[in-house]
């Protein structure tokens, strides 16, 4: 079974099979990350489509010496996501009644406590916890995706775990 980097090389050499293989292997983890971050289906879909469109346009900018294909795609997706969310924030502050209401797919069901807890986390901590726990990416790759120093990844992860643990404790006492 070929690695992502090998498929990328095939794609860079002009074979569309490389692109198909990369899409099949990476669209799912990308979608899961985006969905867990935003909890919005349509926004996540839009970003996935834009990310692979950028990959098609800029396939030659990928350099295996700088990181993995997965990190490269996550970086593109994260930047697109941040741009979209920042644009949305601006709209909301300028014309609050014209900004579309976001549809969070959170049901206030007990089993979805974690969805609410993740949504409540500060943006910077949320991305870290998702990339570490669900994607199991190394520290250096996370730093390159989020464009932050390597040391900051660990400190933000500690803060995120602490916040979630405290939240979990509070929830436990409320239930009790």
């Amino acid at each position: 079974m070929k690695r992502n980097e090998e498929w990328m090389k095939i794609y860079q050499n002009g074979d569309e099979a490389g692109y198909t293989a990369l899409y099949e292997k990476l669209h799912e983890p990308l979608y899961c990350f985006l969905y867990r971050y935003t909890q919005e289906e349509q926004l996540s879909i839009d970003i996935i489509q834009d990310t692979f469109e950028i990959l098609q346009k800029k396939k030659h900018t990928f350099n295996p010496a700088k990181g993995t294909v997965k990190a490269y795609l996550f970086q593109i997706a994260y930047r697109l996501l941040m741009n979209k969310l920042n644009r949305r924030k601006k709209w909301r502050s300028l014309l609050p009644f014209l900004a579309p209401q976001t549809h969070h797919s959170i049901n206030m069901d007990e089993k979805l406590w974690i969805q609410q807890a993740i949504a409540k986390l500060p943006d910077k901590q949320r991305a870290i916890i998702l990339l570490v726990y669900y994607e199991d990416l190394p520290q250096r790759e996370i730093a390159s995706i989020l464009n932050i120093p390597v040391g900051t990844v660990k400190s933000r992860l500690h803060q995120a775990i602490k916040t979630l643990k405290e939240d979990l404790k509070e929830d436990f006492y409320v239930k009790g």
Binding site: H27, E28, I114
Partner: peptide, 17 residues
Amino acid sequence: LKTELNQFHVTVPEQKL
């Protein structure tokens, strides 16, 4: 916390994608 995190399942909408 790990148990709670494991409960966050995501279904990928393949058709819409």
